[in-house]
Design a protein around this nucleic acid. Structure first.
Lengths: 174, 174
DNA sequence: TTTTCTGATTGCATATTGCAAGCAGTTGAA
DNA sequence: TTCAACTGCTTGCAATATGCAATCAGAAAA
């Protein structure tokens, strides 16, 4: 049933899974924004993903084993999407993508603070973050360090600094 | 003239440049296979890229500043494509993509040997390879170590081992 | 009962892709 | 000088993917 692969090259096969304009955006939002529901992913998306494309990508990512989908026990028709282990192992890749983007594309300051922290923290920080994701998404024990909290604090700090004394900038975070 | 960006997020902006099924394939072949001409990229492609798509990607990658294009002094109508510095800085990203692909997709042994070496060598090997690429593509001085030669030797060794005593497998390399 | 929220689906226009064929200019050998 | 092979690249056309707006049915909240 699977379409034949174009080649057995690891880079090619990775591109066959992730090589489009939306898949990694969805994973990024589940991973860094902890968005676990369809509407959360659609409405708070920075990039404004269309609902049919989101539905398609969620389905494909679940089929590819990067996400899992379970019903929400509290809401019968609510689905909860979680990162599976292969997606958690994309943390270093996303960190490098962020680092490259910071250097070679016109990023905005507030949206690149996370990439900056991930880059500066390096592999130890990535490992801590992956441990935290395994807690949030796979039910592993809670690790001592919360990288997520650090990332969000840094994001809020940038927003506050940019806004000066002004409140009500744009929460939109998580 | 530039299309507006979807957002200033570094990951999104990187995807806007590289987030499709072919751009990184082209860069991979220029980088690891040292393919510098249109026909080389088209004919020896593992994945069989169509000529119109190759032409489109080469144009876009040149516009994005990842590749440069100059005429071949020996052949008036021959173009030589070279990696620009931003593309050379994709080495760590491609190494991670290869590592992820090796772990989570059905790679073939002979095509994943390079990814394995890149993964095992880690950042020091990546730096050595980037120095070599700066020599091959940007005219920088030749570095002491040739990672390219190491990668090709490893590839040939795998081919030879798999073929047993048989010759004439499939050169296709470089 | 009505409204809102849930994860989606549908229709339709446009853009991208894949494939085969072809092009004009250049090179190199006969 | 002739001509086939090669150069980067284009064109036509069908199939597929994307983007957008509207909409859906079931469930929960008011």
């Amino acid at each position: 049933m699977d379409a034949a692969h174009r080649s057995g090259c690891p880079i090619n096969l990775t591109l066959e899974v992730l090589g489009d304009r939306w898949s990694l955006i969805v994973i990024r939002d589940v991973m860094f924004g902890n968005r676990r529901h369809f509407r959360e992913l659609q409405r708070h998306s920075e990039e404004g993903i269309a609902s049919n494309i989101l539905a398609d990508r969620l389905k494909k990512l679940v089929e590819a084993g990067l996400l899992t989908r379970v019903g929400d026990p509290a809401h019968q028709q609510k689905a909860i999407y979680s990162l599976a282990e292969p997606a958690i192992q994309l943390v270093p890749l996303l960190a490098h993508m962020g680092a490259w983007g910071r250097r070679h594309t016109p990023v905005s300051e507030e949206l690149s603070i996370r990439a900056e922290l991930l880059e500066k923290g390096g592999p130890p920080l990535w490992e801590a973050f992956m441990a935290e994701l395994r807690h949030l998404h796979l039910g592993a024990p809670r690790p001592a360090r919360s990288v997520m909290a650090e990332l969000q604090a840094a994001y809020r700090a940038v927003l506050a600094r940019k806004a000066g004394g002004e409140a009500g900038e744009e929460p939109a975070e998580n």
